[in-house]
Nucleic acid binder design. Structure first.
Lengths: 150, 150
DNA sequence: CTAACTGCAAATTCTTTGCATTAGT
DNA sequence: ACTAATGCAAAGAATTTGCAGTTAG
């Protein structure tokens, strides 16, 4: 892990933020991981490489990254926030979630059916127009019972 | 507020639960309110009518109602859970959410719901089959910036 | 040099738990 | 009567804040 792509550094500096080691490492962890990490997950991964980086910094950095639009924060309803890089590394795709309310298992799926994509396009377009809203992301989660729990 | 519809009482009793005052009041508050209440909101509303009912009971009752499939729990990412009755009172419709990540404003929308619902049904059917999952509910949230924040 | 950033410890906030009491059935 | 349900106070877990020391620009 060096310094990441130059445009990232520029993005930070030109916004008046500093391109610090913790920020580089946290972004790197997020981009390399396979999604929905909790703050603690990120802290462990980061801490393994740089034990001097503390949990507080992880939280503060994540807030900043979310605010800058580089990272997306969401929630499965288990009382802890999850974070995911918006720019995915190779092999990572946008996905939706199937969440078992019985055992808490989360299934990611990326094989959206045509109807689902159509749904999203239609809705995003209509909503943007009607509410003058710039839509950046969405969460689609289906809740139910998995094969073991039902 | 009396005792609610008789089928509700039956549902509780036949599952081995008791049809208690706090449960009646909490369900009533949820059905009459316009959606996404936090536990504290519910506590205040309930407490106004029956000051003897405590916050702990509100949490425990909400867990039960969620588990019984009468209430849905979700999260806007602000660190507190929200609850909504699945059976809506008159004037209330199923809706999805548009959330501004800038100011935290939440817009409910019920427009385009018909098309969305149809596409959702297809999606749910496919997913159920593919993952052998019994889908009970869904969350659809669009995140972005509202007119003031963008 | 100086303002942004950091780590630590303490504080907050939301939610859950232990336990003695109350109340449906 | 029997046991689920309740309220209170205390505990727990996730996240935030105050502050003094550190570091990028």
């Amino acid at each position: 892990m060096k310094c990441g792509p130059p445009w990232l550094r520029t993005k930070f500096v030109s916004a008046g933020y500093r391109w610090t080691l913790p920020r580089q490492v946290i972004l790197d962890v997020l981009q390399k991981s396979s999604g929905h990490l909790s703050a603690e997950d990120i802290y462990f991964a980061v801490h393994k490489r740089y034990p001097a980086i503390g949990l507080t910094t992880v939280y503060r950095t994540l807030d900043l990254l979310v605010q800058m639009g580089l990272v997306f924060k969401f929630d499965f309803g288990d009382g802890r926030a999850r974070y995911e890089s918006i720019k995915k590394g190779k092999g990572q795709k946008h996905h939706h979630h199937l969440i078992c309310t019985g055992c808490g298992r989360v299934i990611d799926y990326t094989d959206f059916i045509d109807e689902e994509i159509e749904l999203l396009n239609l809705t995003e377009k209509e909503l943007s127009k009607k509410y003058n809203f710039k839509i950046l992301n969405h969460i689609i989660q289906f809740y139910g019972l998995c094969d073991k729990c039902k």
